[in-house]
Write a protein that binds this DNA or RNA. Structure first.
Length: 261
DNA sequence: TGATATGTTTTACT
DNA sequence: CAGTAAAACATATC
C-alpha cells in the first residue's frame, strides 16, 4: 500500500536491479486510463541508462544527470516487479522497461490510479506539483511551522502533500496512535512538545517501515497496522479500535488512549 | 451484492 | 489564502 516507505522500497528495487543497464525498449500492457509516457518520450530513453534514483514524498524518479527522468507515482495499488526475460510477466503490467541482458522492470497497477511520465527536471517537477518537504528529511522547525500552525485536524495536516510530502492514511493513523493523539484534534491546539513528538514518531515509524523494506509482517506486534479494524482490541491499552471519518478519510484510532489536546 | 480501499485532483462552498 | 466536503477516477477484495 504505497505511501512514503512503500515508495522507497519500490525505488530501491530500481536502484538495486536496474541501474547502469542500457534500455532497449518498452512493452505496453492494457493501458486504457493509465498515464504513461508517449512513444516519443519512451524513444528518448532508448539506448540510455538509469544511473540514479530519487524519491520525494510518494514520488519516485529514475534517470541520469542532465537527462530526462522517468517519474512514477504508485497511486492506490501500483508496484514494481523485477524479472528476467523468459520468466512470466506479472499480472496488470502497464509498462515494462526492457534492459540489456534480459532484465525487466514492470510497473504493475491493477486499479489504474498510478502514473508514469517523463519529466525534464526533477526539482522543477516537485516545485510544480507544490509538494512540501519530504517527510523523512524535514527538520523539527520546518515541521512545526508546516503542521503546527494548521487550523484543521492534525490528521488532515499530516496528509496534506503541500505541507508535508509522503504521509498517507495508514502511517498518519499509526503516528497518531503511537503519540496518543486523536486524529481530529486541531493541529494548532497541540503544544510544542506534542508537535515535536509527532515529528519524531512519524520519522521513527516510517524509518522502521523502510528498514523492513515495507514488509508489514516484520513490524512490531503492538503497531496499529496489525489491528487496523473496527472493533479490534487495542494492543497498547486494552481499548477497542474504532473508526471515524476525519477530513474525508477513514481514521482508525483507539479512543481510550488517544486524546484531544 | 454492496461496502470499502492505501491516493490525487477538481470543483464548489464557507 | 485556509479549510471543508464531495465527487470522480478503475478495479479488486472482503
Amino acid at each position: 500500500m504505497p505511501e512514503l516507505p512503500e515508495s522507497d522500497a519500490a525505488r530501491r528495487k530500481i536502484a538495486d536491479h536496474c541501474l547502469n543497464r542500457t534500455i532497449e525498449g518498452f512493452t505496453l500492457g492494457e493501458v486504457s486510463h493509465v498515464e504513461l509516457p508517449s512513444e516519443a518520450e519512451r524513444e528518448q530513453l532508448v539506448e540510455t541508462q538509469f544511473s540514479a534514483t530519487r524519491r520525494h514524498g510518494k514520488y519516485i524518479f529514475a534517470g541520469r544527470k542532465g537527462g530526462p527522468w522517468l517519474h512514477v507515482h504508485l497511486g492506490m495499488s501500483g508496484s514494481f516487479r523485477i524479472y528476467d526475460e523468459g520468466e512470466d510477466a506479472p499480472d496488470y503490467a502497464r509498462l515494462t522497461v526492457e534492459f540489456e541482458g534480459g532484465r525487466r522492470l514492470a510497473f504493475r497497477d491493477p486499479r489504474k490510479f498510478g502514473a508514469v511520465a517523463l519529466v525534464p527536471d526533477v526539482d522543477d517537477f516537485i516545485a510544480g506539483k507544490g509538494l512540501g518537504p519530504d517527510a523523512m528529511t524535514i527538520g523539527d522547525n520546518a515541521f512545526a511551522s508546516a503542521i503546527g500552525a494548521t487550523r484543521g485536524a492534525i490528521k488532515s495536516a499530516l496528509l496534506n502533500q503541500r505541507k508535508l510530502a509522503g504521509v498517507g492514511n495508514l502511517w498518519s493513523d499509526e503516528t497518531l496512535y503511537r503519540c496518543g493523539i486523536m486524529p481530529d484534534v486541531r493541529a494548532c491546539d497541540l503544544d510544542t512538545g506534542a508537535v515535536g513528538q509527532l515529528h519524531r514518531t512519524m520519522q521513527d515509524i516510517m524509518g522502521v517501515v523502510i528498514e523492513k523494506n515495507a514488509d508489514y509482517s516484520q513490524l512490531p506486534r503492538d503497531w496499529l497496522i496489525h489491528n487496523r479494524t473496527d472493533g479490534a482490541d487495542c494492543p497498547r491499552c486494552g481499548g477497542t479500535i474504532t473508526k471515524k471519518t476525519v477530513g474525508g478519510r477513514t481514521a482508525y484510532h483507539c479512543p481510550d488512549h488517544q486524546e484531544g489536546a
